[in-house]
């Protein structure tokens, strides 16, 4: 049979998905979850000067059930790892993870031969979407990370990219 006879479906899922993705990307709900130093820069990103609300990602929720982004801001110790894993598991799909700072990326400055206490990177526990380097990263870097994540979700960049001077 020829394809030309087929009528398009009444309910089109792909455009709906696009719409949903647009909605999600523009109102990411991160989890209020600070592990160490980076959490302060995360707070700074949400506070007066940097104002994460401009990008729709200011609704920090203390409960993982209400979040779709987990910002791993700090060192994951072996004692904390099961709790971090639980929090990740408790988040409803779809969900994304941002590893903020060197500790969450690789263990950062606390990796040495014979280290006994930390998990060397959040990606040892669950998949990570965005890595933001820095010790700690500046709030601008976190914002850029969130914009990068938006691009991941929708497939296009909503805000112009800032070129290095």
């Amino acid at each position: 049979m020829g394809k030309e006879d087929l009528q398009p479906a009444i309910v089109q899922f792909a455009p709906l998905d696009k719409l949903l993705a647009l909605g999600r990307a523009n109102s990411l709900w991160p989890m209020t979850f600070g592990l160490a130093c980076c959490a302060i820069e995360m707070m700074a990103a949400g506070a007066a000067r940097f104002d994460l609300a401009r990008f729709g990602a200011e609704v920090f929720r203390p409960s993982p059930r209400q979040c779709d982004v987990m910002i791993v801001a700090g060192t994951i110790s072996k004692k904390m790892a099961p709790a971090v894993q639980t929090l990740y598991d408790q988040m409803p799909e779809p969900k994304w993870v941002i590893a903020m700072g060197n500790c969450a990326i690789s263990g950062g400055p606390f990796v040495f031969e014979g280290q006994y206490g930390i998990v060397e990177g959040a990606d040892k526990l669950f998949p990570v979407d965005i890595f933001i380097p820095g010790c700690p990263p500046r709030p601008e870097a976190l914002i850029e990370g969130i914009l990068e994540l938006e691009e991941r979700v929708t497939g296009y960049r909503r805000w112009p990219r800032v070129e290095a001077v």
């Binding site: 160490a36 110790s77 709790a83 400055p109 606390f110 040495f112 014979g114």
Partner: peptide, 30 residues
């Protein structure tokens, strides 16, 4: 306690005096 135990005291023993400097800032970052 101990959910963010980062082994500073152990690191103090295996780094030179100068190399330990950055650790002091990460103890109490405020």
């Amino acid at each position: 306690l101990g959910y963010v135990h980062r082994m500073h005291e152990k690191m103090g023993e295996n780094r030179t005096w100068a190399q330990f400097m950055p650790n002091t800032a990460r103890l109490d970052y405020l």
